[in-house]
Design a protein around this nucleic acid. Structure first.
Lengths: 214, 214
DNA sequence: TAATAAACATACATTCGTGAATGTAAACTC
DNA sequence: GAGTTTACATTCACGAATGTATGTTTATTA
């Protein structure tokens, strides 16, 4: 039983990615042996080395598959109308948390990223992509906050850079901690009030721009 | 050159902990070889195995040394007067961020914890301690929020559980992201407005208690 | 339908890191 | 100041994981 049809090959690759995500979550990325992943997927290590160069490339593929939905959310939101920038930000955040709350694979993905992975030199590819994604996300949100200031939704002297970083940190922290204990509270139900709370803080008492020195 | 005086022994242990923190940060915990740590500390692996049972115990010691100051902050704050619960929370958060902003060792520590470590089975000890610390911190803060509600500083129907988890997530996210780019903004200067922003959101639009079903 | 290449399985060599075992010299105890 | 223990250094043997090389069978292609 060797050379499969094209569809079977795709299926093998998919089951490898799914198995890798599971084993990564159970054992941590650095501690997983490729033989474990192969066994979980019902193949041998040879199959892994056929589809991926090494563990780093496998991990990268797992990451790209896992972050696709979130990136799709961001891309979709960038199309959205800009009559109400703050509402756009709110919906963006809400959709991200909802995606996390509702999809087990997304939970597994973020569990791995946040708690079961060491971002070291050999994963430089993934780190670089993460950095690029974060930068894109941040600049997109900051643009929305700038529009919110222009609309009068936020005070004139709002430091939108800090506001953006604050919101991003909030989102990261919520995901980081919630995946540790998904049963601690109902994320799907609580996302909206949690997000509204931060945005209300921004409207009421945002970080202010300091007069630039010089 | 063997058997040192007691003070020299303490110094060796200290330099091992410092070396471990550095190497953990550079290579990630799972990828560091104890020989690297020994070399960095100017000793051999024998010295490590004398002071610590294995890598997990070394990591645990590094963690305990690194989280001491933050725990001291919490302990100190628990003594504080309770006339102004929200101000106490604010100062608590501010001190934690200030500690991070001002001490290179604390930055290294959180960089390792957040980005250079896999929390897997073999580190169960550390995970358990983390969980206990987090639970203690959360309940302490929630008590302060409860007092704030009693004082009228927060609305009567504030869901203090969610408020606490939100603040905790915010803090975790701020530290998690800032250590990735300490030069991205001046944390020491921005901590206060960032914290005030979230607390203002709590006062203005907190997560509300839902009527319990049944 | 013959030839080629895909999609793995199998077998192998090698390296790497660990833990334990042992050596040892100096500090501490009495 | 002799014995004991400390605080390491050195050496060794072992397993484990990796990457590669090769085998094998079947889909695909011309």
């Amino acid at each position: 039983m060797v050379k499969k049809t094209r569809e079977a090959t795709r299926a093998t690759r998919e089951s490898l990615l799914a198995a890798a995500l599971q084993v990564f979550r159970e054992r941590g990325v650095a501690h997983t042996r490729l033989s474990d992943v192969a066994e979980r997927a019902g193949v041998t290590r040879g199959a892994i080395y056929w589809h991926f160069k090494d563990k780093a490339e496998l991990f990268q593929a797992v990451c790209e598959r896992g972050t696709m939905p979130v990136e799709a959310i961001l891309a979709e939101a960038s199309q959205s109308a800009l009559r109400d920038p703050l509402a756009t930000v709110s919906q963006l955040a809400l959709m991200a948390l909802t995606q996390l709350a509702q999809h087990a694979d997304t939970q597994a993905m973020f569990d791995v990223i946040f708690h079961k992975c060491e971002f070291t030199a050999e994963l430089a590819q993934v780190v670089a992509k993460n950095d690029a994604d974060r930068a894109a996300c941040l600049s997109q949100v900051q643009r929305l906050f700038d529009q919110a200031v222009a609309c009068g939704q936020l005070p004139d002297d709002t430091d939108t850079f800090l506001a953006t970083h604050g919101l991003h940190a909030y989102m990261v922290g919520l995901m980081h901690e919630w995946v540790l204990n998904p049963q601690s509270y109902d994320l799907a139900a609580c996302s909206e009030p949690l997000i509204d709370c931060y945005l209300a803080g921004l409207a009421a008492c945002p970080p202010r721009c300091r007069p630039q020195p010089g």
